[in-house]
Nucleic acid binder design. Structure first.
Length: 587
RNA sequence: GGAGUCAUAGCUCAACUGGUUAGAGCGCUGCCCUGUCACGGCAGAGGUUGCGGGUUCGAGCCCCGUUGACUCCGCCA
């Protein structure tokens, strides 16, 4: 037996016991005579004291200890001398007086310190096994474990079966770029790594499974972001004979239990709800952060008679004028104005009009175009006070909302409007558009995915070809401005699914080739069904207040999808390629 | 595919307007130290300033290119 206790276990009540601990040397304080050592394992730290007058040979060996040496230490638990207790340490009331020291393995000097922040992420990733020794990373992985554990228990209790679906799947034209895997046995044919178990889980519903879930690995060959990675994990579920409200209740219950287990808080349910249109109109984004206000206010009526050319032009073209009031931000610097303007332009705005309210005056290049009545109405509608900064957008509705939505987030970041790091603002967003026109490809594409059910009341719009107006029976769950999950009620009728594919520009022949399995399955009594997927990585980020997705994953790839620890992807011998019937292009 | 920021000792960072031998803290090495917990003291080692080119009497600093990292836009059913 290597140990009798772990390093976060011993307390005053253990005084007098002989114990054995095993772990890593976290730090040494060698006084020449007495030596103190902090021993660390996964659970915590315990101070070991080596006393030359009691155990001279053990103390002599202890002089040679260096950080990260792996040791097994036996000794008696002693109450610390009065005045030397360490309140910062859970085990700070006691120490272990070592009577035996067994060095299990020496460590070289580490390439970076474990006890302070290291900015060089390459280095951390290259030595991930060392980085994982940091308590912060272990804490994140523990939270992740809790999330998955609670999920399994909760969904089991609710009648959901955990079922695995293939990772090697079929390439489809819609959706994220896929990782392809060449087949050895079937030359010149390729699997695609599953970007989601979507079709399999729907086929499980056709198979009468009724309630399925999976902690599913998904692979998407797209450029990563701070909260996105190519290899992600989802809590994926699907159920038959259910409606949106069933999913909403199920997920609210699940999140309640997850946050209770991980953060020890009871979150407020039910969550507030917004339609997609409301979210865009009021917050300029489909995943609003409700931890602060600064809502978009529509001023189109107010400026209906405006002579200001920019507003006039937008309104005459059927657009809108909207404004946000950045309270107390009149002290914005010229550089920050420029930063916001650049952000607006990058979001397809022509510019960003602003008014600073300083020393009782409205300072702005545009204020001279406003008549007194407009100023008075503006003041009333936006609750304008000394020190405020008004930021305007005038253009098409979509553009104005998007631009001001991004400005709103940027201003909140600069002003540090989020004061309480523990605040949790959940909401549901419903009624997304089903389809969006993609000018780059000159075709309609799904907002969610091609299996999403149109809302019943909008089916006629779909038949009429008014695709942009059709709403989907889809839902996203949002926490603090982050989309943590999304799903939909699905199409279960063959003819409706075929219609969707046709709208998406997939002809009958391609439909059979690519989705024949699904279309055929739907002809054999497919039940009404729907589901949702929650992003585990993002959820754990929010739970642990981590801003970098790589910090909640044991072995993450970097922003180019490169694994610095294993040096992957790597080249392979020609022989292996031949076996797979593929050939490298000459470089 | 596009944009921004960054790259100086093992780590975290300095280095004024382009100007002497590129500094500090931590870590490391050696010696000393019997109640520390960021232990302390003394001494020491450690640098192709990512790489390549250019401007200049002189480049860590300016210019061009390149590589890499991170972040953002596009993309992410």
């Amino acid at each position: 037996m290597y140990r009798t206790h772990h390093c976060n276990e011993l307390r005053s009540s253990n005084v007098g016991q002989e114990v054995t601990l095993a772990g890593w040397i976290d730090s040494t304080r060698d006084h020449g005579g007495v030596i103190f050592v902090d021993l660390r394992d996964r659970e915590g730290r315990t101070q070991i004291v080596f006393r030359p007058e009691e155990y001279p040979r053990v103390a002599a060996t202890a002089h040679t200890l260096r950080n990260e040496d792996v040791t097994q230490i036996t000794g008696k638990v002693a109450r610390r001398v009065d005045g030397t207790q360490n309140p910062k340490l859970a085990t700070g009331e006691i120490e272990v007086v070592a009577s035996s020291l067994n060095i299990l393995n020496r460590s070289e000097i580490l390439p970076f310190p474990l006890d302070s922040e290291v900015g060089n992420e390459d280095l951390r990733l290259a030595y991930r096994y060392l980085d994982l020794r940091r308590p912060a990373l272990v804490r994140n992985l523990k939270a992740r474990h809790q999330v998955v554990k609670v999920t399994r228990e909760y969904l089991d209790r609710n009648g959901y079966l955990e079922i695995e679906t293939p990772v090697l799947s079929k390439s489809t034209p819609e959706g994220a770029r896929e990782f392809l895997v060449p087949s050895r046995l079937i030359p010149h044919h390729y699997y695609a790594l599953s970007q989601s178990p979507q079709q399999y889980k729907q086929l499980l519903m056709v198979g009468g499974v009724e309630r399925y879930f999976q902690i599913a690995k998904c692979f998407r060959d797209e450029d990563p972001r701070a909260d996105r990675i190519t290899e992600l994990t989802q809590i994926d579920l699907e159920a038959s004979f259910i409606e949106r409200e069933d999913i909403v209740q199920l997920i609210e219950g699940l999140l309640l239990e997850i946050f209770r287990a991980t953060r020890g808080v009871d979150i407020q349910t039910p969550f507030p709800r917004l339609t997609y249109h409301q979210a865009m109109d009021r917050f300029g984004i489909d995943k609003p952060d409700l931890r602060f206000g600064m809502e978009l206010v529509d001023l189109s009526d107010l400026f209906a008679g405006s002579q200001f050319k920019v507003f006039r032009g937008a309104l005459d073209n059927g657009g809108v004028v909207k404004c946000i009031n950045a309270k107390g931000f009149a002290k914005i610097t010229t550089g920050q104005i420029e930063e916001l303007t650049n952000l607006a332009k990058a979001s397809d705005a022509k510019g960003l009009a602003f008014i600073k309210v300083e020393a009782g005056e409205w300072k702005s290049p545009i204020v001279k175009f406003f008549v007194e009545a407009e100023k008075a109405a503006l003041k009333q509608k936006l609750d304008v006070e000394e020190g405020d900064l008004l930021l305007f957008g005038a253009d098409r509705w979509e553009i104005v909302c998007t631009v001001l939505g991004r400005i709103r987030l940027k201003v909140a970041e600069i002003q540090q409007l989020i004061k309480d790091p523990n605040e949790l603002k959940f909401l549901w967003v419903f009624d997304f558009p089903l389809l969006a026109f993609d000018p780059a490809e000159n075709k309609w594409s799904s907002i969610h995915h091609p299996f999403t059910r149109p809302k019943r009341e909008d089916l006629q719009l779909l038949q009429d070809g008014d695709y942009g107006q059709v709403r989907a029976e889809a839902y996203d769950v949002v926490l603090n401005g982050v989309e943590i999950g999304g799903g939909s009620i699905r199409i279960h009728e063959q003819h409706l699914q075929a219609k969707m594919f046709q709208v998406l520009g997939i002809n009958a022949e391609q439909q059979q080739k690519l989705f024949g399995h699904l279309l055929k399955a739907f002809t054999f009594g497919a039940p009404p069904h729907g589901g949702i997927a929650l992003g585990v990585d993002r959820l754990v980020m929010l739970i642990t207040r981590t801003t970098n997705i790589r910090d909640v994953i044991a072995f993450p790839k970097n922003s180019r999808g490169f694994d610095l620890l294993m040096d992957s992807p790597s080249e392979v011998p020609e022989e292996k390629l031949r076996e797979l019937h593929i050939q490298n292009h000459k470089r």
